[in-house]
Amino acid sequence: MPDEMSGGPRLLIVEDDADFARTLKRSFERRGYEARVADSLEQMQEILKTHSPSHAVVDLKLGGASGLACVEALHAHDPGMLIVVLTGYASIGTAVEAIKLGACHYLAKPSNTDDIEAAFNKRNGDAEAPVVERPSNIKTLEWELIHRTLAEADFNISETARRLGMHRRTLARKLDKKRLD
């Protein structure tokens, strides 16, 4: 497979927010990474024909599609690639799926270059991580249910609203209230 010969790590950013992708790309390039950007699964697959990244940052929500398909394809391309998933729609379910599909880490937005690079460098789990009881309130439970259902519906707002038995506009308002990206 053709590949560029460079001294630094090769990074692929799969992100549909052009401004965020450009900022992330510049920040990683200042740190010595050779960075490429794709805004969809299809564009990512085209890049993989000529570029073999050592690292990848994948947004969980790419327009109407799920970034989990990108994680799966990247892992199939190179099982040793370090893949970090970024999301404004964090949920336990999507975190578990991302890791099972080959991601090494999962970060909720907002995350910056330092957070992502730390995630790349933290390859193993931490058995000393504190197990803390997280107080659940009705708003948190609702938020998690909405985002789990949103992920299950491939980020289709209308289908998510139907599954939750709520009006589409009500769901859109709830998502706008606590948007994380």
Results as ranks from 00 to 15, higher is better:
Gly125Arg: 12
Met44Gln: 06
His77Lys: 12
Val84His: 08
Asp176Phe: 01
Ile146Gly: 02
Arg31Ser: 09
Arg31Cys: 03
Val71Pro: 07
Met1Cys: 03
Asp176Ala: 15
Ala98Thr: 11
Arg31Trp: 03
Gly64Glu: 10
Leu74Phe: 09
Arg173Ala: 08
Ser52Arg: 14
Ala161Tyr: 06
Ile92Cys: 00
Leu86Ile: 10
Lys25Thr: 12
Thr113His: 02
Ile47Lys: 11
Ala129Thr: 10
Val132Leu: 13
Asp115Arg: 04
Glu15Gln: 13
Ala21Asn: 08
Ala56His: 09
Thr149Tyr: 04
Leu180Lys: 13
Pro130Gln: 14
Ser91Arg: 03
Lys122Ile: 02
Cys104Trp: 04
Val71Met: 06
Ala76Ile: 03
Ala151Val: 06
Gly8Gln: 05
Ile157Asp: 07
Gly165Ala: 10
Ser91Gln: 03
Gly64Phe: 00
Ile47Ala: 07
Pro9Gly: 13
Ala127His: 06
Asp181Tyr: 08
Lys109Gln: 10
Ala90Thr: 05
Leu145Gly: 09
Ser136Ala: 13
Asp16Ser: 14
Asp78Pro: 03
Val131Cys: 01
Arg162Lys: 15
His55Leu: 05
Arg134Ser: 04
Tyr33Asn: 04
Ala151Gly: 07
Ala119Gln: 03
Asp176Lys: 14
Ala103Ile: 06
Glu34Arg: 09
Leu180Val: 12
Ala129Met: 07
Asp115Gly: 03
Ser54Arg: 02
Ala103Arg: 10
Asp39Arg: 15
Arg162Pro: 01
Glu128Ile: 00
Tyr106Cys: 05
Val96His: 07
Ile13Ala: 01
Gly93Asp: 11
Glu15Phe: 09
Gly8Arg: 04
Ala95Gly: 11
Ser158Tyr: 05
Leu101Ser: 10
Arg31Val: 04
Ser91Asn: 09
Val132Ala: 11
Met5Val: 13
Ala127Asn: 07
Lys178Asn: 13
Leu86Asp: 03
Leu74Ser: 07
Val57Ala: 05
Ala151His: 12
Thr170Gln: 14
Glu128Phe: 14
Gly93Ala: 13
Arg162Val: 00
Leu82Asn: 11
Asn124Thr: 12
Asp181Cys: 00
Thr50Trp: 09
Ser136Phe: 15
Asp19Phe: 11
Gly32Val: 06
Glu72Ser: 14
Arg22Pro: 00
Gly64Trp: 06
Leu74Cys: 09
Thr170Phe: 05
Ala76Thr: 12
Ala108Phe: 03
Arg134Glu: 08
Leu12Tyr: 09
Asn124Gln: 13
Val131Ala: 07
Ala172Ile: 09
Glu117Asp: 05
Glu42Gln: 11
Arg30Met: 12
Glu29Asn: 05
Cys70Gln: 01
Ser54Trp: 03
Pro79Phe: 06
